[in-house]
Measured scan of single mutants.
Amino acid sequence: TFELKGKVGKVVKIAEDHYLVEVEGDKWIAYSDEKLSLGDRVMVVDVDGLKLKAKRIP
């Protein structure tokens, strides 16, 4: 999973306390310091076990 750092994905679902992000065809649980919206493009900035930390990108 460490190779996911720096990869770009898309928010495909918003849950109460996390997001579901699709990166290279796989879906991952993600969290972010900022509020994300459905369809936002994100970059993986860190990997915490099986969770990704994501940041919105333009």
Score class of each variant (00 low, 15 high):
Thr1Tyr: 15
Thr1Arg: 15
Thr1Ile: 15
Thr1Met: 15
Thr1Ser: 15
Thr1Phe: 15
Phe2Met: 15
Phe2His: 15
Phe2Val: 15
Phe2Thr: 15
Phe2Gly: 15
Phe2Glu: 15
Glu3Lys: 02
Glu3Asn: 03
Glu3Met: 02
Leu4Arg: 02
Leu4Pro: 15
Leu4Asp: 15
Leu4Phe: 03
Leu4Cys: 15
Leu4Lys: 10
Lys5Gly: 13
Lys5Trp: 15
Lys5Gln: 15
Lys5Asp: 15
Lys5Ala: 14
Lys5Tyr: 15
Lys5His: 14
Gly6Trp: 03
Gly6Tyr: 02
Gly6Lys: 00
Gly6Ile: 01
Lys7Asp: 06
Lys7Arg: 04
Lys7Ile: 03
Val8Asn: 07
Val8Met: 09
Val8Gly: 05
Val8Pro: 04
Val8Arg: 04
Val8Phe: 07
Gly9Ala: 08
Gly9Met: 06
Gly9Val: 11
Gly9Trp: 01
Lys10Gln: 11
Lys10Glu: 12
Lys10Asp: 13
Lys10His: 09
Val11Asp: 00
Val11Thr: 08
Val12Lys: 07
Val12Cys: 08
Val12Leu: 13
Val12His: 06
Val12Tyr: 07
Lys13Asp: 09
Lys13Ala: 10
Lys13Pro: 00
Lys13Tyr: 10
Lys13Gly: 08
Lys13Gln: 11
Ile14Leu: 12
Ile14Cys: 11
Ile14Lys: 08
Ile14Thr: 10
Ile14Glu: 12
Ile14Asn: 08
Ala15Glu: 10
Ala15Val: 14
Ala15Trp: 13
Ala15Leu: 12
Ala15Asn: 12
Ala15Met: 13
Ala15Tyr: 12
Glu16Lys: 09
Glu16Arg: 09
Glu16Leu: 11
Glu16Ile: 09
Glu16Thr: 09
Glu16His: 11
Asp17Leu: 09
Asp17Pro: 11
Asp17Trp: 09
Asp17Lys: 10
Asp17Arg: 10
Asp17Phe: 10
Asp17Gly: 11
Asp17Met: 09
His18Asn: 09
His18Tyr: 09
His18Glu: 14
His18Ser: 12
His18Leu: 14
His18Arg: 08
Tyr19Glu: 01
Tyr19Trp: 11
Tyr19Arg: 00
Leu20Ala: 05
Leu20Asn: 06
Leu20Ile: 13
Leu20Phe: 10
Leu20Gln: 08
Val21Trp: 00
Val21His: 00
Val21Thr: 03
Val21Arg: 00
Val21Glu: 00
Val21Tyr: 00
Val21Gly: 00
Glu22Cys: 11
Glu22Phe: 13
Glu22His: 09
Glu22Tyr: 11
Glu22Leu: 11
Val23Ile: 14
Val23Asp: 02
Val23Ala: 03
Val23Ser: 02
Val23Thr: 03
Glu24Arg: 03
Glu24Met: 07
Glu24Lys: 03
Gly25Trp: 06
Gly25Pro: 03
Gly25Lys: 06
Gly25Val: 05
Gly25Arg: 06
Gly25Leu: 05
Gly25Thr: 05
Asp26Tyr: 13
Asp26Ile: 13
Asp26Gly: 13
Asp26Ser: 14
Lys27Ser: 10
Lys27Phe: 12
Lys27Asn: 10
Lys27Cys: 10
Lys27Glu: 11
Trp28Gly: 02
Trp28Cys: 02
Trp28Asp: 01
Trp28Glu: 02
Ile29Glu: 13
Ile29Ser: 13
Ile29Met: 13
Ala30Tyr: 01
Ala30Met: 15
Ala30Cys: 05
Tyr31Trp: 14
Tyr31Arg: 08
Tyr31Ala: 09
Tyr31Pro: 01
Tyr31Phe: 13
Tyr31Glu: 12
Tyr31Gly: 11
Tyr31Asp: 13
Ser32Ala: 12
Ser32His: 03
Ser32Trp: 02
Ser32Met: 07
Ser32Cys: 14
Ser32Gly: 05
Asp33Lys: 07
Asp33Tyr: 07
Glu34Gln: 07
Glu34Asp: 14
Lys35Tyr: 11
Lys35Gln: 10
Lys35Ala: 09
Lys35Asn: 08
Lys35Trp: 11
Lys35Val: 10
Lys35Cys: 12
Leu36Thr: 01
Leu36Lys: 00
Leu36Phe: 05
Ser37Thr: 09
Ser37Ile: 12
Ser37Met: 11
Ser37Glu: 12
Ser37Leu: 11
Leu38Val: 09
Gly39Glu: 10
Gly39Ser: 11
Gly39Lys: 09
Gly39Thr: 07
Gly39Ile: 05
Gly39Gln: 11
Gly39Asn: 12
Asp40Leu: 04
Asp40Thr: 05
Asp40Glu: 05
Asp40Ser: 05
Arg41Tyr: 13
Arg41Gln: 13
Arg41Trp: 12
Arg41Thr: 13
Arg41Ile: 11
Arg41Pro: 12
Val42Asp: 00
Val42Met: 10
Val42Lys: 00
Val42Ser: 01
Met43Lys: 06
Met43Ile: 14
Met43Asp: 08
Met43Tyr: 04
Met43Asn: 03
Val44Asn: 00
Val44Pro: 01
Val44Thr: 02
Val44His: 01
Val44Arg: 00
Val45Gln: 04
Val45Thr: 08
Val45Gly: 03
Val45Ala: 05
Val45His: 03
Asp46Pro: 02
Asp46Arg: 02
Asp46Ala: 04
Asp46Leu: 03
Asp48Lys: 04
Asp48Ile: 14
Gly49Gln: 08
Gly49Met: 07
Gly49Ile: 05
Gly49Phe: 06
Leu50Glu: 11
Leu50Arg: 09
Leu50Lys: 08
Lys51Met: 07
Lys51Asp: 04
Lys51Trp: 06
Lys51Asn: 08
Lys51Arg: 11
Leu52His: 01
Leu52Gln: 01
Leu52Arg: 01
Leu52Asp: 01
Lys53Leu: 04
Lys53Gln: 04
Lys53Pro: 01
Lys53Glu: 04
Lys53Ile: 03
Lys53Val: 02
Ala54Gln: 01
Ala54His: 01
Ala54Pro: 02
Ala54Asp: 01
Ala54Met: 15
Ala54Lys: 01
Ala54Ile: 15
Ala54Gly: 06
Lys55Val: 08
Lys55Arg: 06
Lys55Pro: 01
Lys55Tyr: 02
Arg56Gly: 11
Arg56Ile: 07
Arg56Phe: 10
Ile57Ala: 09
Ile57Glu: 12
Ile57Ser: 06
Ile57Met: 09
Ile57Phe: 07
Ile57Asp: 11
Ile57Asn: 06
Ile57Arg: 03
Pro58Trp: 07
Pro58Tyr: 07
Pro58Arg: 05
Pro58His: 10
